[in-house]
Amino acid sequence: MVKQPPLLRTEKLTRTLTGEIPITLVKQADVAIHAGEFVAIVGPSGSGKSSLLYLLGLLDKPTSGDLFFDGMNMSTATEHERARTRLAKMGFVFQFHFLLPEFSALENVLLPMQQLGEVPFEQGKARAIELLTRLGLKEQMHKRPHQLSGGQSQRVAIARALINKPQMLLADEPTGNLDSTSGNTVKQMFRELARTENCALAIVTHDDSFSAQADRTIHIVDGVIQP
C-alpha cells in the first residue's frame, strides 16, 4: 500500500514577533497532518498553541520555515493564493462564534460559499440547510445571531466552516466558551463531521476529554513541539 503524502506539512516553522525584545511564538515546528486525521494541539496557556494553529491555517505568516498544503508551498504563495486556499480548502472555528450580526444563521453559513462562487446559489443553499439540519438548527436557520444561544451560534459557525467542503478544519478552543452540555454536543459533532466529511481536524483545546478522542496529540511548550 502506497502511503499518502500528508495534507499539511511544515519544516522548521518559526514565528517571531519583532520588537525591542523579540518574542518567539513558535520555534522550528515540524508538523504533518494527513487527510481525515484528527489532531489535538495541547499545552499550557501561552505555550503557542493558537499561534501554531494560525500559522497552519495561513492566517499568520511564518518568520522562517516552510509550510506545504495540498502539495503547494504556502510560504512563497501570494496573499491571493493564501486567501483562496483558506476559502476553498480550510474552515475555521474560534472560541467565539464571530457570526456577522446583520445576517441570519443561514446567510452566515452561505457567506464563504457565495464568496467562493463555484457552486450555484440554490445548490449551496441546499447544502447549508442540510448542514444546519444535521447540526439541529433547522428551526433556527432564519434567526439572527443575537436570537441564538452560545451553543447554537457555535454550531452555526461549524456549519459555516464546513460549507465549502474543506480539506481541513481548524478550531481554536471551540468549546471553551460553552457550557458542558453544549460543549459535549459540539465535540461530538466535530468527531462525526470529520468522519463523514473526510476532513482533517486540527483543534487547539484545554479539554483533556476532547484531546483524548484525537488520533494524535501535539504537545507544545514555550513554542516548541515536544517529542
Binding site: L59, E79, A83, R84, L87, A88, F92, F94, L100, L116
Partner: peptide, 10 residues
C-alpha cells in the same frame, strides 16, 4: 477579521 480568515482579501 473573520471575513479575512474566511478568505476575503484586503
Amino acid at each position: 477579521a473573520i471575513l479575512k480568515s474566511m478568505g476575503f482579501e484586503a
